[in-house]
Amino acid sequence: MNPYVLMILISSLGIGTTLTFMSSHWLLAWMGLEINTLAIIPLMAQQHHPRAVEATTKYFLTQATAAAMILFASTTNAWMTGEWNIQQLSHSPSTTLVTFALALKIGLAPMHFWMPEVMQGLDLTTGLIMATWQKLAPFAIIYQISSTTNPTLLTTLGILSTLVGGWGGLNQTQLRKILAYSSIAHMGWMIIILQFMPKLTLLNLMIYIIMTSAMFMMFKYNNATKINYLTLTWSKSPVLATLTMPMLLSLGGLPPLTGFMPKWLILQELTKQNLAITASIMALATLLSLFFYLRLCYAMTLTLSPNTTNTSSTWRIKSPQMTMPLATISTLTIMLLPITPTIFSLIM
């Protein structure tokens, strides 16, 4: 792609998200979402092969529908109450409609079917943008409407997407689909806490973005798109292969690692709100996700590739890819738990 065009597209992505962050008016927030969608479409379709075009078409249809639904709900709210402010969405049917539209945009459970397929059609860099940056703008709106949305709806969406995210990933061998299902499960955790403590949603989003970028960068470094490619990574870069195991367990939320922090705080808050059953269901549903992360760990560190390997390690050519971001972000993915009080007090 022409570098000037690429620059325009990347800056439009930035501008779209910034516009949604800045706006308190529904129309401007909608414009930001639309700019975001329109800017990533050429990036997704730049390798002109059938899978990329198919993924782009599916992404376009879902995102355009979701954006139109958001604007319709806010227009209905304006007709009923005369108010365009995001935080004052008081008409109850339009609140529900906005929640559904935003759930479609970020891929929460009953509306998640586009997410794995779209992720599968992209290359890993665009997939990284899709899993991280494209979530920010919808979450800016979700955070602002958190006080007016229907609590039952939010709980249902949260539990359902944690279950579906865990369950759907069990059957997959493609890494990008596994990451998409892991994204669905993490979105469920973010939504379940939204009504009680919206700050924790932001904390979970931040930690999720760190962890999933580390995974995408690691897969990009090894050019891995299937589980059986992972069995060869030890011969390419043994240290990274070893490091990936705690990264995956952190994504699954095991205690001495970063991924445990949001789950811990969310479970604590849910228990404080006398929702022990919800908390137990969430914790048990995460075990499903943990199973497929463990399967990835097993494939990476405990098995050999089914191919014949003539040498025990491949020739170490210096990789042209940048490793500094990967090193930083994988350290963050593994070792952030001890500074939980600092992060918690920063975000509160």
Binding site: A45, H49, P50, V53, E54, K58, Q120, Q174
Partner: peptide, 23 residues
Amino acid sequence: ALLVAATRTHGTSHLQNLNLLQC
């Protein structure tokens, strides 16, 4: 533009033919 691209890569513009990414 996506309609044109999908027609060129898939041969038709039927939404049923967009099934390469399913599992």
